[in-house]
Amino acid sequence: MTNTKRAASAILSTLLGIAVVGAVGITLHTLSADALRGKLVATKSADTITVDGKNYPKASVTMGVYPDRATAVEHGSKPTKKDYVQYGPSNHVVLPAHTYVTMTLHVYDSGDKLNNPYFGKVVGTIGGTINIDGVDVSSVAPDAVQHTFTLHGLPTSSQDPLFVNVPLPHVEVNDKDEFIPTKDPGTNNKGHTVVFSFLTGGKGEYVFNCEYPCGDGTYANFGAAMGAYGYMSGKVTVA
């Protein structure tokens, strides 16, 4: 074998190796994109609102908690729920920066006790309250919570802090038996509708997750749906 040939084979093999590793990377990246199921962009409105003497534009976004029957398996501490609960329609929410965002959550699930009662309190919303089916409250009893919407992010010099914790009240089990959730959260006629508002800061990347132990596992119930990306967790981009 000549030197040229050998060098060519070495370089080609190296490129092939890099291509293989690259292909693995692209595959993983594609899988990751699937988990996000597109983006949910907040609807901006023409109105503005004044909070603490400053003017903010308004935007709204509607989400819900519903069972994903496509990947349905029994889960939870008692195998009665044949579904994975998840936030939807997407778990990548895009919000405008420096905006008064009103979020509506349609929720249907039953629930029980929080691991940490702190997450029964409302934190970070305008006025420190949320509106549950027309009633303003500042906290939900820690043993009557179905899920929480807890929005947080990395503290970093380049993005403003943003922390919102919204406890979602549980639905009585009797109601739930008759209740058939659908993929479109707007059509929920039972369960609860929770509305709250908060202010976004500058651009940044945040995440949200649920603090109610609604997953699998015998320990703390944070396995399965809770521990896997894209069910009770997601990301929020403030753009």
Binding site: G25, S32, Y229
Partner: peptide
């Protein structure tokens, strides 16, 4: 390791999900 370093090449978790 290459995948891990690719994810960490920039902040913002832009390459793969936290699960993966």
């Amino acid at each position: 390791a290459m995948m891990i370093r690719t994810q960490l090449a920039q902040p913002g978790a832009k390459f793969i999900t936290p699960s993966i």
